[in-house]
Amino acid sequence: MGNLMEVRNIETYYGPTMAIRGASFDVPQGEIVTILGANGAGKTTILKTISGIMDPQKGSVSYQGREIQKMDPDRVVGLGISLVPEGRELFPFLSVRDNLKVGAYTRRDHAAVASDIERIFEYFPSLRERAGRPAGMLSGGEQQMVAIGRALMARPKMILLDEPSLGLSPKLVKEIFEIIVRINRENGTTIVLVEQNANVALQVAHRGYILELGRIVMADTGAALLQKDDVREFYLGIKDQGVRGVRRWKKRKTWR
């Protein structure tokens, strides 16, 4: 299968600060692609650039052969790209059900919207009981579920997930990631996953990119990245012990 999206040499600025310094990567159709990086590497900025919240100064984002880098976010959603923003960003005073309905704002088929809400409740059974509650009163895990459900409501071809594990317990993180894999398998939805939790992300991802200071420094399949020394050392925190059990050297990243 070909690439659903190709990002080429994008440069994005926050005022005078250059956050993305010419990043390029491909997102193949139907795969889970993860972008890993430390704080401030530019992961969120990349998603904001793709979804149209920020415009890149240079470079292109082409989606299904169409350049979308200058489009406004409401048009990008219409093309089938949904963003699950960092920190959920729900509508706190709207009920869970209304939050999901707003997610389907771009759609006109009301009957299908109702059945899709049922499907979301099937993915996340704990939301069903909370359907009438204001979203701001839910726990963090449930809020993340609403955020993912809300993005699904637009029936996207591609979901951009910004740190879904943020602030969740390991058990909840596992649950959320199981759902993400399920969504990908059942609907063939392409997923771009931005994470700090490299271990979980690489286990589910078909392909991974490592972003550092606004540049892509490494690209490989998820399984291969899990085995790489540099990734193990700097992102997974697994250190090789020296012969005498004491490390006397400081390892440097090979891409520097």
Partner: peptide
């Protein structure tokens, strides 16, 4: 509902395709 959404969280409303 969309108006309420836009007033509660503009950024998220924008991401949902609300003008």
């Amino acid at each position: 509902t969309a108006m309420q959404a836009a007033s509660q969280n503009q950024l998220a409303a924008y991401c949902m395709g609300i003008p």
